[in-house]
Design a protein around this nucleic acid. Structure first.
Lengths: 177, 177
DNA sequence: ATTAGAGGTTCAATCATTGAACTTGCAAGG
DNA sequence: CCTTGCAAGTTCAATGATTGAACCTCTAAT
């Protein structure tokens, strides 16, 4: 199985998982997909990822049934998470929580609220109001309280769409350019 | 911050996390550490990772306070997870669960039991008996029901130690060579 | 018919990884 | 004291992955 980066001999679930989603950029693509990003150019512009790499990664994700490529109403192809891809949410969330706790100052962290009940979601993924662990589709992501100059300078459609509250797994709102 | 692999411009918790633990081998090292692996040579032998890379990754993990290097009673240095490193458990678990569900046949998956109550732990990390979500130190990992020929041929101390039930975060039992 | 932009592919330069060979430091045995 | 052995590195040439720039092709609008 000539995957790009194998961990040969490791008959281990983590090694298997990392062979697929452990490559550079892949989990950032998946995260953006949770945020509603779907077009090739939007991934490209938001992540500043080389085209060739984005092509390769998206193809791999589609091959593995993590994303599927569908032709949208606009006639343009979009890449969306399959159920198997959506099951990566706990991985994405746990990485994000850990990274936020140790590397992002509190006033620059995004807050998430449980769309159903409006409660804040803690780092462990639990709604502080109703104690449920909402699925990604039931989360609304709020913009950061303060943004770094680097981010503030970004004007691509994705960055703009994510500067207002946004429900996960719903396509980003494309403000007219 | 000239980390080996940056995701420049991404003021994002996941990007920060991946800069540190997203490199090839790093999460497998962390996983092995949860399993009680601590010596340079044991990581080396079990993962078949090039020495130079292992050196670099361990140094990075120590620099970031994810592991600490301590001199054991034997006089040999050991690398052990810090509390910050142990907080990566949910990431490791979620990756492992996802990888197991989709890429490891059921009869080759390792089972985990809640050491306190003896209940089986489901893919979502919950104890099926007491419904708690045990911390890694309260988990006992069982050997695989069946092993592939590749694994059966391994005779390094780590593979041998993990072929019997083993409590996480406790040093592996070193059977006399 | 021309233009523009999306979504690629191709390619040379750079950077990371690999495996093998070499080095260092310690500890035990003779 | 001298040697041997081993853990834990370091170094280095060959290989493989990533990057950024340039080019290509298709479609839709002017």
């Amino acid at each position: 199985m000539p995957l790009p980066r194998e961990y040969t001999g490791e008959d281990c679930a983590i090694a298997r998982a990392l062979e697929i989603i452990g490559e550079r950029w892949t989990l950032l693509i998946v995260r953006d997909a949770f945020h509603g990003v779907a077009r090739f150019s939007d991934f490209r512009d938001h992540l500043a990822i080389p085209r060739a790499v984005l092509t390769e990664r998206l193809n791999l994700l589609v091959e593995h049934g993590i994303m599927s490529r569908v032709t949208a109403g606009s006639g343009r192809d979009e890449y969306v998470l399959t159920p198997k891809g959506q099951e990566l949410w706990s991985t994405v969330w746990s990485l994000q929580s850990w990274g936020a706790k140790y590397y992002v100052p509190e006033n620059r962290r995004r807050a998430y609220i449980h769309t159903g009940c409006g409660g804040a979601v803690a780092l462990d993924g639990r709604c502080e109001t109703c104690d449920a662990q909402p699925r990604p589709g039931d989360l609304t992501m709020l913009p950061r309280p303060t943004v770094s100059p680097v981010i503030a300078a970004k004007t691509d459609p994705v960055s703009r769409a994510l500067s207002v509250p946004h429900r996960l797994l719903t396509p980003i709102e494309r403000t007219h350019t």
